[in-house]
Design a protein around this nucleic acid. Sequence first.
DNA 1: ATGCGAATTGACCAAGTGGTCAAATGCTTT
DNA 2: AAAGCATTTGACCACTTGGTCAATTCGCAT
Lengths: 207, 207
Amino acid sequence: MTETRPQTRIQKKNREAILDAALEVFSIEGFRGATLDQIATAAGLSKPNLLYYFASKEAIYTELLSKLLDTWLDPLRALDPNGDPINELIAYMRRKFEMSREFPRESRLFANEIVQGAPRIFDEITGPLKALVDETAALIQTWIDANRLAPIDPHHLIFSIWATTQHYADFDVQVRGILIPDGDSHLDAAEAFLVTLYTRTLTPVAH
Amino acid sequence: MTETRPQTRIQKKNREAILDAALEVFSIEGFRGATLDQIATAAGLSKPNLLYYFASKEAIYTELLSKLLDTWLDPLRALDPNGDPINELIAYMRRKFEMSREFPRESRLFANEIVQGAPRIFDEITGPLKALVDETAALIQTWIDANRLAPIDPHHLIFSIWATTQHYADFDVQVRGILIPDGDSHLDAAEAFLVTLYTRTLTPVAH
DNA sequence: ATGCGAATTGACCAAGTGGTCAAATGCTTT
DNA sequence: AAAGCATTTGACCACTTGGTCAATTCGCAT
């Protein structure tokens, strides 16, 4: 199904440059707001040359999205059913936070897509994403039933981890506009806050 | 500075219809993605007629944004310094959640604007919004200092309340794609989850 | 009913957009 | 060095888009 032809060195380099430039532009402008000229310029190519490597604007976008979704789910897959529940969930939150920190453009690309109704990724949400989330929620529920976590709704717990961590990528401008931080120092405080938030929420009380 | 001419009945009706239609379209498509034709059609007017009431696409958008920001900050302003700290913060969270529930289009409009770098609202963020947030954070800190709240970073607490509540409006498609809820029933569960989350986080422990 | 400003619109325009294509240039292999 | 494929691009096209404008229609006060 994929390219049978082996990619040349130039092809590899240019396709990578295009995808990186497209990520930059799409993550800020959204699909409709981005233009091929912007992407081509950012990639250091002419527009027809860009279209020599990708069939259409849509093709670039969907390739970006599908490549990203997989990476995005990795932290969830890394949950260890045999680990300590609180450690595992805090570690998951940390990994998500780390991704928002390392890959804010990717986070914003998804945010744009979802806010605008997920027209090109809805099937992935109701399919693999839902399956993985449901599975993880079930695991969390077993931990709760075993009194190893304070009782809480597992699905909404997962949503809240997404919301709080991605906030620092997606709403970066707002956060910086309010905190006026020096560099990225505020992100360390944010992570400490989130560790406290979830530790207090998840730690069961003896009774 | 505002219109000196008294608005006619027709003007009032049409301006309202336009702003409502524009909210619908902008909140889904973002500024660049929305077209005047879409807005005009949604408002039941022709494009030239729409431009008879507003000078430009930009004018519609900025009027929407500035009107909305004020409403958006009301819940924060309603915090009572003399109330019970935990009750006040939970009540604030509930009001924010209520707004996400009642006005998801408004929430998504802001989300679009912020994710895309807040090009047309940045001054409002570093100005009035920052001032109000800083003031509220200081109030929360006094509550913490008085041992009436468990110690926590006030700014990041506010951010987390924004993130978790707005998530249900901004990422509605994703939430529904995973939960496949019957109507809006899941939002009651979400609110209960959030009450638990913040009660556990904010309740001070005796020691 | 009629006059007059308010409201509406069809036709139009310039700029921007995604995409095409034939021709030119570059790179490798023999 | 020459063939042959990969790469690049200037010119172009059809369509969309924000916005204009003159002409028309509407609604209301007299």
